[in-house]
Design a protein around this nucleic acid. Structure first.
Length: 305
DNA sequence: AAGACGTGGCC
DNA sequence: TGGCCAAGTCT
């Protein structure tokens, strides 16, 4: 091999993180070499705002039951919601169900490998689209999630934490860390996320074990504390979110449609309860049967025309 | 463009 | 104990 005429711009940060990742990456089921892009897509839906440990068992069962998009598309909405279990944010399950139907019907049962096509699917935004391109197809794509934003904020910018998203600038920051080569870039993308997930964590980062501590702008600056604006922590107790959760919990456990009285017992505030039940109907997570009972369900993809 | 949207574990 | 946090998306 001849040496390149011009030095390829490389990032020590990206390369060292990738080396560390190749040696230390967690053995997660969706990282197995035989995982399909569909398996990656399912994992990304489940991992949105949800810890790895809770996702693992659900992902295993899900992929055994629905190994291809068309299989999920053929399932009923109640089946899908029960399989989702208590992962949280059940609208994700509904959107994954709808995305599967679209992939089966419009993409020949093959998960798109193009960012724009992916983002056109329900429940898939900037992060998930690029994660599928990188981890499902081994292609170069800047993957920006909360972990990566924190790593970049610290290691590159020397700040204590990331602050509010700056979508374009964040993408550019990460893009600058990726090598040109597709598969090498995909490894760096996974590696940056892993670093943020296990080493460069939000509280008590493990800088002593960090593969890039020598290149870290935050350490160089003396690990200054983050002073910028914090996203307000969302309350939960007493919110519609909690009530919806309780309602759905009853419907998930029920083998047959339940009378409204079975739902009334989970929350004493009547108006709030009714509002939440209605929102579940609107979201396609619950449905009312002809005899006025309630059940898991709602719009099933493919049944409308 | 803030705020809604579940659930549970950790310190 | 209770705030904080966990691979976001949508409106």
């Amino acid at each position: 091999m001849t040496a390149p005429l011009r030095t390829v711009p490389t990032s020590p940060l990206g390369e060292r993180t990738a080396d560390w990742f190749r040696a230390e990456a967690r053995d997660l089921p969706w990282r197995r070499p035989d995982t399909t892009p569909w398996g990656v897509l399912v994992s990304e839906f489940m991992l949105q705002q949800t810890p790895v440990a809770r996702v693992e068992p659900v992902w295993e069962r899900w992929m055994a039951e629905w190994p291809v998009p068309s299989a999920l598309a053929a399932a009923s909405r109640p089946e899908v919601l029960r399989a989702w279990g208590k992962l949280g944010y059940p609208r994700r399950a509904a959107r994954l169900h709808e995305a599967a139907a679209a992939i089966a019907a419009q993409h020949g049962d093959r998960v798109p490998s193009d960012v724009e096509e992916l983002e056109a699917l329900p429940g898939i935004g900037s992060y998930t689209a690029r994660a599928v391109v990188a981890f499902g197809y081994g292609r170069r794509a800047p993957v920006v999630d909360t972990n990566v934003r924190r790593v970049v904020a610290r290691a590159v910018h020397g700040a204590g934490d990331a602050g509010p998203a700056r979508v374009k600038a964040d993408l550019a920051d990460v893009d600058a860390l990726l090598p040109r080569d597709d598969s090498a870039a995909a490894v760096v993308s996974a590696a940056l996320m892993e670093l943020g997930a296990v080493i460069c964590v939000a509280r008590n980062p493990r800088c002593g074990a960090c593969p890039v501590h020598a290149d870290c702008a935050w350490i160089a600056a003396g690990r200054p504390e983050y002073t910028g604006p914090r996203r307000p922590v969302q309350g939960f107790a007493g919110t519609d979110r909690q009530v919806r959760g309780k309602l759905l919990d009853v419907l998930r456990a029920a083998e047959a449609p339940v009378p409204k009285a079975a739902l009334d017992v989970v929350w004493s505030d009547g108006p709030q309860r009714d509002r939440c039940l209605d929102s579940l109907l609107v979201d396609g997570l619950a449905e009312q049967t002809a005899d006025g009972h309630f059940a898991l369900g709602g719009t099933t993809p493919g049944t409308t025309d």
